[in-house]
């Protein structure tokens, strides 16, 4: 009888000390089958949130790279515009304009470099073809001033929430070469044309009404300036689009931070036990075991009538 009582007090002690160590109410599924199912579900949701967060961070990195590159692109275009305004002046002479043409050539080269930006060995603007150089210029650029897009229009997507995917690339062809509509331009062609115009010598082929040929050149320069303006707004549009996407990622990330905290508090609500409560239970279990042991000892040591028999 005492053995059973002692064994059962002992197992209460064990259970209590297990809870004391883990500070958890649930240490195995049978402690609360429904609760542990719910916890598993929440844990799995937390795992998924962690994955979404890591996806979003990857996305943010990619979009940020694209944004920086496009900002630099816009600065280059501004610079080209300045040079074009400077070059649209007949007093500069043929040599002066040639010098500006050389700078424009330099800008074209820089633009090509930007458009072919590579992060971790992957091209930013070539769509799925991250291993393919996205843009190449004609060997004789700027004559003809044609550029080729070697990438494709598929954009890498990541899942940022269940059923919600976001493209983490932008279309390089649209950003740098336009989409063929009147409001967009091919930046390489614009710069190539500008360079060609700047290299056209003054006073060589006099035309009626335009003795030094400069009016024709000036008109062409004006067209290039307009095209550059279109180019700048085309790049700005892409930057704005990127900003919107980044805002969405930031907001989603913030949501997930909140959700994760909530889920964790749910889990600890189900699973955790108040330390004061556990220590009290532990002490109670300890006391019960001691009481059982000492009462067993006392009862078994009671003097019996046997001690008086035969005296």
């Amino acid at each position: 009888m005492f053995q059973r009582a002692i064994a059962s007090r002992n197992s209460e002690m064990f259970r209590s000390s297990e809870q004391l160590q883990s500070q958890k109410r649930i240490n195995r599924p049978s402690d609360d089958p429904e609760g542990s199912k719910t916890i598993l579900n929440y844990r799995s949701a937390l795992d998924k949130i962690a994955q979404y967060k890591s996806n979003i961070e990857t996305g943010q990195r990619n979009l940020r790279h694209a944004e920086i590159t496009l900002n630099t692109t816009k600065e280059l275009l501004d610079q080209a515009k300045q040079l074009a305004i400077q070059g649209n002046n007949s007093t500069l002479g043929t040599d002066g304009r040639k010098a500006i043409a050389d700078q424009i050539k330099e800008i074209s080269a820089q633009l090509l470099g930007l458009a072919n930006t590579e992060i971790n060995g992957q091209y930013l603007f070539s769509g799925f073809k991250t291993d393919t150089l996205p843009f190449s210029l004609d060997a004789a650029f700027p004559n003809p001033s044609t550029a080729t897009f070697n990438g494709n229009t598929n954009l890498k997507q990541i899942e940022i929430a269940e059923g919600q995917s976001v493209a983490i690339q932008i279309r390089g062809d649209q950003a740098y070469m336009g989409d063929g509509t009147a409001s967009t331009v091919d930046l390489f062609a614009v710069l190539g044309t500008l360079e060609n115009t700047l290299r056209t010598p003054i006073n060589t082929a006099a035309v009626a009404g335009d003795p030094d040929h400069f009016d024709t050149i000036s008109a062409a320069m004006g067209d290039s300036l307009e095209d550059l303006d279109l180019g700048v707004s085309q790049v700005l549009r892409e930057i704005t689009g990127l900003g919107g996407k980044q805002n969405r990622l930031d907001a989603t990330l913030g949501d997930f931070e909140v959700q994760a905290v909530t889920l964790k508090s749910f889990i600890s609500g189900i699973e955790d036990k108040d330390i004061a409560e556990i220590s009290m239970e532990f002490q109670k279990a300890q006391l019960a075991l001691q009481a059982t042991l000492s009462s067993a000892g006392a009862i078994m040591n009671l003097p019996s009538l046997m001690e008086f028999v035969g005296r």
């Binding site: 195995r28 599924p29 049978s30 402690d31 609360d32 089958p33 429904e34 542990s36 199912k37 598993l40 579900n41 799995s44």
Partner: peptide, 14 residues
């Protein structure tokens, strides 16, 4: 499905 298994195992043990 897996959570269902865990639930069954837990309630049987309980």
């Amino acid at each position: 499905f897996y959570q269902g298994i865990v639930g069954t195992v837990g309630s049987t043990a309980r």
